[in-house]
């Protein structure tokens, strides 16, 4: 059976209980458990995470996130994959993607201060032999992430009982 519906439900809310996923997809609970285990084993599901609005965490006003653009130069012995492996190894790198356009890699970096972010980029990323240029963009405000809006969205202004 196609497990796309299970993946969609978990992508919407990874905390759906197995019982609820079974009800929502008209399967048995055992079948859902088995399908999820299989998706995890095959590496289709890589992990479960919460979408956090860190700005709403009172004592977290120091947390700084940045998008870092990286240009690289490749040679016969070095592929994008090799560079990616080196970059992904840093725990400071939360996300890493190869993109089309003016630069090659898009990094998501998260640290406790702007100073730490810039030090990481200048001390760890820029010196790598394949990196030719970096541009750091500090994130000033998040409005939407992983499909979740960080404002209150649309109010439910419906009447409580209507025909």
């Amino acid at each position: 059976m196609d497990d796309r519906d299970i993946l969609e439900l978990l992508s919407e809310d990874a905390r759906h209980s197995t019982a609820d996923i079974a009800r929502l997809t008209d399967r048995s609970e055992a079948a859902v458990e088995e399908a999820i285990a299989d998706l995890e084993d095959r590496g289709v599901i890589r992990g479960y995470t919460a979408v956090v609005d860190w700005d709403a965490v009172v004592d977290d006003d120091e947390r700084v996130r940045a998008h870092v653009e990286c240009n690289v130069t490749l040679d016969r012995e070095t592929s994008y994959r090799d560079v990616a492996r080196r970059l992904a190894g840093f725990p400071e790198v939360e996300g890493l993607r190869l993109v089309s356009g003016d630069y090659d890699f898009a990094l998501e970096v998260e640290r406790d201060s702007m100073r730490e972010v810039s030090r990481f980029v200048s001390d760890k990323v820029a010196p790598l032999p394949e990196i030719t240029q970096t541009v750091t963009h500090y994130i000033m405000e998040t409005y939407k992430q992983s499909g979740h809006r960080f404002d209150d969205g649309d109010d439910d202004d419906r009447l409580s009982v209507t025909p």
Binding site: R158, S160, V161, T162, P163
Partner: peptide
């Protein structure tokens, strides 16, 4: 229903 607070409504036709 309107008189009550915090009603969870399964009565909405929209």
């Amino acid at each position: 229903a309107e008189e009550m607070d915090d009603v969870i409504s399964l009565g909405v036709g929209e």
